[in-house]
Design a protein around this nucleic acid. Structure first.
Length: 583
DNA sequence: GCCGTTTTCGGCCCGACTGTTTTCAGTCG
């Protein structure tokens, strides 16, 4: 049997939550399943393994009952309660309940009264005007529903947009609005401000001398394709790219409350309100109501909001309900882009990059870097753009020449060597030993089982000349899941051998992700944040790797390439082995 | 179904919007 990963366990809990909701159980029970799904999804260790060890209840939100359900899922591959409910409610009903404006209650009513059990039977019922006879439904609902069904909406969520793309657009929108004479403050909020992997839409919060004028200004931007609404203090538009933008113009004395509210996340805000209600404070986007005095406090800044709640200001990247609100928690001083002093993963024309060694080195120098490793693809890359051993010998010479010619930066000769299916690199050790730096990545045979893939990765980690693992899970955001990997074993091996693990900053990778990076750092693994630049401009992409590092609670000290070259050089596995002398 | 500076029972976040209703349930963020 294939190993149950956390994502599939979370999906099982979400499904069971939906089914219970259709069944009409008390809402808090449904919420418990949703919370459990999030806890499993956010868990940094294998929940299946945790369950087998009898430790699943250590997760917040997993109690006796959910532990039993977990055991059934791990042992049999399914949960008996889910099987029963699936037999009771046709699978098409879940799709109906996920239509816009629909939920479990309305789906259930149509099922009970009209026998609607799929999108097809729902359409038929609409066309026969049967819905208007049901309490709570009318002609308008039928009309809208047919529109939605004709548009091909099927209840599955719309694909999310990669952060890099949304942020580029968001910064253009914000820049344009800030330039407007009526604008005072203009800030991005929402998941974009939290720097999540991808976003659904874009929230902008502003203050202005003339709110209606600023709202109108948004609708007139050349980026805008269509205007949904524009009012006295808000506007909603869709950009040419399909991204929706929501602007809210608020009073300056509540800017802090609104910005905090719309930055989220939902989990953070719910957690914050639950925590504060016990202290007699009720938080909303309009202010903080104190039970004791009956007065509502409005805050001009977010700092004031958190201060009024007795908390330090929490960086947006940490607002995910992942422990940032736990009493007594010490918030880390997060790593910043300015802390980075070198990049250990980039490509040149020798493989699939666009620039020469010198161009890359000069660009790195211009960014203020103290070191740069040239790491072209190795001999079996498989996409045509690879470096044969003889070519790598010539790269060693070229890099030495550039390094000698350039003042102020250490240009390192490295490679991004492929990890073959047995875990070996695809250059021989003698050649690898002559390099300054070796990063190793999986680029082939993604389909191996978890055991074999993990063995492969651990073997690479244990290799004496492999200094770091590049994009360790191989995931592509919104496109493909990573290959099957037991990350606990990978992290343990990396910590034991002093092998670094990368946060690859390519915006569609951000791999390691924030969950694994946080766990790796906790285990004592040195984390790299690398651009994987394929052109001089690509060094800019490092900000997305830094965003992931911050979401992983990493400090400057957790990230290896915040160090000076001499300090970093000494941290490399090859340097540590040399320091220990011959074995 | 979970959980505990109101702890083993009785709570469990906040407000807007929508379409249907004469006072509100359900959905959404």
């Amino acid at each position: 049997m294939t190993e149950l990963n956390n994502a599939s366990i979370a999906a099982a809990f979400d499904e069971l939550g939906d089914l219970y909701e259709l069944d009409g159980v008390v809402q808090y029970r449904v919420i418990a399943y949703r919370n459990a799904a999030k806890a499993v999804r956010d868990a940094s260790v294998s929940v299946a393994e945790l369950t087998r060890q009898g430790r699943a209840t250590e997760l917040a939100g997993i109690g006796k009952t959910l532990d039993e359900k977990l055991r059934a899922l791990v042992e049999t591959g399914d949960i008996p309660a889910a099987q029963k409910l699936r037999a009771k409610y046709p699978s098409g009903l879940r799709a109906v309940s996920h239509l816009p404006g629909f939920g479990p209650k309305r789906a259930r009513r149509l099922y009970d009264e009209l026998g609607v059990d799929s999108l097809e039977s729902l359409r038929a019922a609409c066309e026969r005007h049967e819905l208007r006879g049901i309490r709570g439904f009318g002609a308008k609902v039928e009309e809208k529903l047919l529109e939605v069904l004709d548009a091909g909406v099927d209840g599955t969520p719309e694909p999310r947009i990669l952060l890099s793309r949304a942020l580029t657009l968001g910064e253009q929108v914000v820049g344009a609005l800030r330039a407007h004479p009526a604008a005072r403050q203009v800030e991005l909020a929402g998941s974009l401000r939290r720097m999540t992997d991808s976003v659904k839409d874009l929230d902008v919060i502003a203050t202005a001398s003339d709110p209606a004028a600023l709202a109108a200004a948004l609708t007139e931007l050349s980026l805008v394709d269509s205007v949904g609404s524009a009012g006295e203090n808000s506007a909603r538009v869709t950009l040419h790219t399909g991204l929706k933008v929501d602007l809210k113009v608020v009073e300056p004395d509540q800017f802090g409350n609104v910005l905090q509210h719309f930055t989220g996340s939902k989990a953070h805000n719910v957690g914050l309100r639950e925590l504060m209600v016990r202290r007699g404070l009720h938080i909303s986007e309009y202010g903080i109501l104190d039970d004791a005095t009956g007065e509502t406090t409005r805050c001009a800044t977010e700092e004031e909001v958190y201060a009024r709640l007795g908390l330090p200001w929490i960086p947006p990247e940490l607002r995910e309900g992942r422990g940032e609100l736990q009493p007594g928690v010490e918030l880390p001083e997060l790593v910043t882009l300015a802390d980075i002093r070198g990049d250990l993963h980039c490509h040149t024309v020798a493989s699939d990059g666009r620039a020469s060694i010198e161009e890359m080195a000069r660009a790195a120098l211009a960014r203020g870097y103290e070191y740069l490793a040239i790491t072209d693809h190795s001999a079996s890359h498989g996409f045509g753009n690879h470096v044969e051993p003889a070519e790598l010998e010539r790269q060693i010479e070229r890099v030495a020449e550039v390094n000698a010619a350039l003042e102020g930066i250490e240009v390192l000769i490295g490679t991004e060597t492929n990890i073959l299916t047995d875990g070996a690199p695809d250059y021989d050790d003698e050649l690898l030993a002559r390099l300054d730096w070796v990063i190793a990545s999986v680029h082939t045979s993604f389909g191996m089982g978890e055991r074999a893939m993990t063995d492969r990765m651990v073997a690479a980690i244990e290799h004496p000349w492999i200094d770091a693992i590049g994009h360790p899970t191989g995931r592509k955001i919104e496109t493909r899941a990573g290959y099957a990997l037991d990350m606990e074993r990978v992290i343990e091996a990396a910590a034991r051998t002093g092998t670094m693990l990368e946060i690859n900053a390519a915006p569609d990778r951000r791999d390691l992700d924030e969950i694994h990076a946080r766990e790796a750092a906790r285990a004592g693994v040195r984390i790299l944040v690398d651009s994987d630049a394929h052109s001089a401009r690509n060094f800019e992409l490092l900000r997305y790797g830094i965003a992931t590092a911050r979401r992983a609670w990493l400090t400057k000290d957790d990230v290896a390439n915040t160090r000076s070259w001499p300090e970093f050089a000494a941290l490399r596995k090859r340097a540590r082995a040399a320091a220990q002398g011959p074995r």
